[in-house]
Simulated assay, not measured.
Amino acid sequence: MSVRATARIVARAGGALPVLESDGPLAVRRTRAREPGTARVTVVGAMSAPLGGDRLALEARAGDGAHLTVDAAAATVSLPGPTGATAHYDVRLAAGERARLVWLPEQLIAANGSSLRMRTTVELAATARLVLREEQVLGRTDEEPGTLLTRLTVRRAGRPLLDQELACGPGAPGGWDGPAVLAGHRAVGQLLVVDGAFEAEPVVPRQLGATAVLTPLAGPAALVTALAADARALRRILDGALAGLTRDDG
C-alpha cells in the first residue's frame, strides 16, 4: 500500500520553530544549531521510503529574518514497490526577506528496480540567502541503478533563477550515461549558493578538478555541478566548494 505524507517546517527570526510537523516516514526533529538565534532541523527516516507509488512532500520556510538549516540523519533510498509504480517526492522551500536557508540533505540513492520523480522548488525573497546541496547516487554497491528523474526550480524575487532537470537509469532518454552527461560516473551532485554579495563580486567560472565546474548565475548566485565515482568522492568535492563560497552557513 502506498503512502501519502507531508512534513512541514517553519522558522522565525530568533530561532523559533512555530511549525514542526512530521508525517508518515518523514520525521523532523529540532537539533542543536551552531549559532545562537538560529534554528536547525534534522530529517530522520521513520520507515523505509520512498517506495514505488509513495507520494511524499517536505515543506520548509524561513520567515523574514530567520536563519534555518535543514539536514538529514541518513541517506534517502528509493526502493521498488510491489506494483512497479513510480514514487514522487516533492521538496518545497521558501525564504523571506533577510532570511538564510541552508538545505543540506544526505544522498538520494536510486536502488535497482526503483522509480522516483523528485521535484525541488525554491522561492526566495530579494534579500534572502540560500545554500542548497543535492546529491544523487545511482544504485547501491555493485548493483544497477533505478530510474531517477530530478528537477530543481529556483525563483528569486518572483523571477526565474535556475530550472534544470536530470533523468538517469532505465527508461531515461538515451545517452544519460554517455560522455555528454554522466560519462559512466555513479554519483552526481550540485551546490547552489544564492547571496547578494555576488552582485558586487561575481564568482569566476572555473573547473574544480577534473569532474566539477563552478558557474556564476544571474540572480546573483553560484552553481557547482560535479560528477564522481562514488558518494564519498562527490561529498568531498562539494564540501570543498562550499567552504570556498561561504563564510559560515552551517
Results as ranks from 00 to 15, higher is better:
A7H: 03
A7N: 02
R8H: 15
R8C: 10
R8G: 07
I9V: 14
I9E: 00
I9N: 03
V10S: 07
V10F: 07
V10T: 11
A11P: 02
A11V: 10
A11L: 09
A11Y: 07
A11E: 08
A11N: 06
R12K: 14
R12P: 04
R12A: 15
G14P: 06
G14R: 07
G15M: 09
G15S: 09
G15T: 12
A16M: 12
A16T: 10
A16G: 12
L17M: 13
L17G: 02
L17F: 09
L17W: 05
P18S: 01
P18K: 10
V19A: 09
L20C: 02
L20R: 02
E21I: 10
E21W: 09
E21R: 13
S22Y: 00
D23L: 07
D23V: 03
G24P: 08
G24C: 12
G24I: 11
G24Y: 08
P25A: 01
L26V: 04
L26R: 00
A27R: 14
A27D: 07
A27S: 09
V28D: 01
V28S: 01
V28F: 00
V28T: 04
V28C: 04
V28L: 09
V28G: 00
R29A: 05
R29Q: 13
R30E: 13
R30K: 13
T31N: 15
T31I: 15
T31P: 09
T31R: 10
R32L: 15
R32H: 15
R32N: 10
A33Y: 07
R34P: 08
R34I: 15
P36F: 08
P36E: 14
P36L: 13
P36N: 10
T38C: 11
T38D: 05
T38M: 03
T38K: 06
A39S: 11
A39M: 13
A39V: 12
A39G: 13
A39R: 02
R40G: 00
R40T: 15
R40V: 07
T42F: 11
V43I: 12
V44H: 02
V44G: 02
V44P: 04
G45M: 06
A46N: 02
M47L: 11
A49R: 00
A49T: 02
A49M: 03
